[in-house]
Amino acid sequence: MSALAVDALRKSFGKLEVLRGIDLEVAEHEVVCLIGASGSGKSTFLRCVNLLEPIDEGRIVVAGEEITARGIDVNRVRRRIGIVFQAFNLFPHMSVLRNVTLAPRRALGLSRAEAEERAVELLERFGLADKRDEYPDRLSGGQQQRVAIVRALAMRPDLMLLDEVTSALDPELVAEVLNVIRELAEAGMTMVIATHEMAFARDIADRVCFLDEGVILEQGPPEQMFTAPLEPRTQQFLQRITEAGRL
């Protein structure tokens, strides 16, 4: 059974059709990277999988359960799917520890002690133990994004969605966040990662999907995708990236 199966997913914003029939299957423990130009639909796709955007057509199945079925409890679905955003979106009025314990306590019903134990364990694992009582505005961008990842992990999700999580970071802070993701991949976390970090995608992905105008135009193992893409559009995209010195 695949961790995620998306079938003919379509999504429009007004007249603009952003996703024009996406099919994607992700196996358990698989890391799939989505690449493609801005506006190709990567973020919208991830938001649809987390049910943050209602879809127009198609089906999304997570671990055998169709989450786009009518009458599904979206809160229960979202507890199993973690998402990390480009802009961190930490809660600015809460300390790091409260950011991380809020959902386990309120959505999973953990006691404060249980939630804090879980949070501290994760914060220690990702080198953030000394930041537990800080507020987000006292942290660097890289630290904020690592806290955001920990916050999602505290729900013990089966699937993690990462939406260009290093795009808002200063260049020198990118590595610390990528290392966290690498560690997650090594631990066997199933992940779908939208990214502009091509070297990273090549290194970490089991499979790379190239999105173009709302469809997955081409997909394959990273070596093949980055060295011998078949589609002219993929070649063109990767060429531009190479010219910009990003590969």
Partner: peptide, 11 residues
């Protein structure tokens, strides 16, 4: 995005 972050966690 604050609401999205909260809802995405299952709240």
């Amino acid at each position: 995005s604050q609401e999205a972050a909260a809802r995405s966690l299952g709240l």
